[in-house]
């Protein structure tokens, strides 16, 4: 499953509207299908902006961001939202889930906005149950509101949600920062198994270089992206 590019950024330049002092440029970065990459960067290094660009929340003024062969700039805002739902699984640092929604509903939420992904997932309920089991979540937890789960359990639900329907790209933003060292390792193990099983590419952003061992590549954010800051 390593044919094709899951993600590519070329000559990207982005400036937040109304904030001339900050500019992010990415000359070139690609992620192959099935590849796992850890991107190391401190907070304030343009990490959030880069993730927003990749997910199509914002569009660069210059250059191209392509996900799974589609240029995000060519899509209108609504189509980008749907495209994100179809092709990208997102895992946040924490506060990943709708606390009032059941585990099952949280996992199935992206399918609500992505018909193709929904058909890929097949029987959504069974698929959600399968992922839960694979990620070590007890079956009886599936009906429980996500807010009642431990942080570690919540992160695993977030992984299941990102993986359902096998999107080509998984973006994770410091998913382990709220976990202690032992849970972290177990979590990463489960994450990698499932990402491999789904054949997705994984782009994880973190400040913790100890995580690097499992990844195909480890890059520093500074290596691929430059930020310019001027005193306003």
């Amino acid at each position: 499953m390593t044919d094709g590019t899951a993600l590519s950024l070329r000559n990207v330049g982005f400036r937040w509207p109304g904030r001339q002092s900050f500019r992010l440029t990415v000359p070139g970065f690609t992620l192959q299908r099935g590849e796992t990459v850890l991107l190391l960067g401190e907070s304030g290094s343009g990490k959030s902006t880069l993730l927003s660009l990749i997910c199509g929340i914002i569009v660069p003024q210059e250059g191209q961001v392509e996900v799974d062969g589609t240029s995000l700039s060519s899509l209108r805002a609504g189509a980008r939202d749907r495209f994100r739902a179809e092709r990208i699984g997102v895992i946040f640092q924490q506060f990943n889930l709708l606390p009032y929604g059941s585990v099952r509903d949280n996992i199935r939420l992206p399918l609500r906005f992505a018909p193709d992904r929904r058909s890929r997932a097949g029987d959504a309920e069974a698929e959600a149950a399968r992922l839960c089991t694979a990620l070590g979540l007890a079956p009886e937890l599936q009906g429980v509101p996500a807010g009642r789960l431990s942080v570690g359990q919540q992160q695993r639900v977030a992984v299941a949600r990102a993986l359902i329907g096998q999107p080509p790209l998984i973006v994770a933003d410091e998913p382990t920062s709220a976990l202690d060292a032992r849970t972290q390792d177990a979590f990463l193990g489960l994450l990698f198994d499932q990402v491999r099983a789904a054949g997705s590419a994984l782009l994880m952003v973190s400040h913790d270089d100890r995580l690097g061992a499992r990844f195909d590549r480890v890059l520093r954010l500074d290596d691929i992206a430059q930020t310019e800051r001027q005193a306003a």
């Binding site: 994100r84 992206p110 906005f113 992505a114």
Partner: peptide, 16 residues
């Protein structure tokens, strides 16, 4: 706002 960000990340449009 967190909650809305999750909805957005899952592909919900601002209109949603």
């Amino acid at each position: 706002r967190r909650e809305m960000a999750i909805w957005r990340a899952m592909g919900a449009r601002p209109a949603t």
